[in-house]
């Protein structure tokens, strides 16, 4: 099975966020970046399918040069080769604009399966995979935890709300968006990191993939959210704060 996994590099979860001078995005200088978590699960699922079925795993990522480190990580974990869509202006494209780039880059590969994470930890749009399916005219399923090849197609486990699940059968080629938690993620081994350096790593510029059309949806300002409840912050040393909290829970909230 030939599998393309679209992965995204996002600001590290624990990185402090500061709004930049434009007020439209966060300050990226000095920020740590990491592989978007659901994408890491998508890669894991792809690697397991390949181990079971044979085939090839191609990782694909769009973004500026820094994205290369996340692509290398995917190669070190076991992807066979990589495509980097180089673009410094992804922020000016909407979800459809980005998906069009990815779709164009995927087309010549004609994969049997395309996996993406179900959403990114930064923009959280949760749309790229589903739009890809539409653009490539392929069947899709989203929020997938497990994928099984059946010979004629795929049987997948889809998460529903509130602890419910559902099985879906679909033919290949197909697009799936992967939810976190279906597998245990592997670490890159030293051997894998070494091997990654020799694997094919192809860059294609966004401009070569087609004209960018005007976005239909634009992000204006970003801001810190406002509070829904007034929080009493209990300060002092850990011991003082703990003692103050017990007081509050006992005499103010009367819970303990």
């Amino acid at each position: 099975m030939k599998i393309v996994v679209a992965i995204k590099q996002v600001p590290d979860r624990d990185a402090p966020v500061r709004i930049d001078a434009s007020g439209k995005w966060i300050e990226e200088s000095g920020l740590q970046f990491a592989m978007n978590e659901p994408d890491a699960y998508a890669l894991e699922e792809a690697l397991r399918l390949k181990e079971a079925q044979g085939g090839e795993v191609i990782v694909l990522s769009a973004g500026p040069e820094r994205v290369g480190t996340t692509i290398r990580e995917a190669l070190a974990k076991g992807a066979d080769r990589a495509i980097h869509i180089t673009a410094d202006d992804l922020g000016t494209r909407d979800a459809l604009g980005v998906a069009k780039l990815i779709a164009e880059a995927i087309k010549p590969e004609s994969p049997d399966l395309i996996l993406t994470g179900l959403q990114s930890e930064d923009l959280g749009l949760g749309q790229t995979g589903v739009i890809l399916a539409e653009l490539l005219n392929l069947p899709h399923a989203s929020l997938i935890l497990h994928v099984e090849a059946t010979g004629t197609g795929l049987k997948v486990k889809r998460e529903l709300e509130a602890g419910w699940f559902q099985e879906i059968e679909l033919p290949t080629p197909a697009v799936l968006t992967i939810q976190s938690g279906g597998n245990k993620l592997r670490y890159a081994t030293l051997m894998g990191i070494k091997k990654a350096k020799t694997k094919e790593f192809r860059a294609v510029s966004a401009a070569d993939l087609g004209q960018s059309s005007a976005p239909t949806v634009t992000l204006g300002q970003i801001a810190l959210p406002s509070k829904q409840r007034s929080t009493q912050i209990l300060s002092g040393s850990a011991k003082e704060a703990a003692a103050a909290l017990v007081e509050k829970l006992k005499f103010e909230a009367r819970i303990i």
Partner: peptide, 30 residues
């Protein structure tokens, strides 16, 4: 700035590895 504080009535901003043991002790003695 964690969003959990937007819905919290009481908050302790600190390292849980220090705060949680202290809280467990404080509850036990209360």
């Amino acid at each position: 700035d964690a969003p959990i504080f937007e819905v919290a009535d009481y908050g302790i901003v600190g390292d849980l590895f220090e705060v949680v043991p202290a809280l467990t002790e404080a509850i036990k003695s209360a």
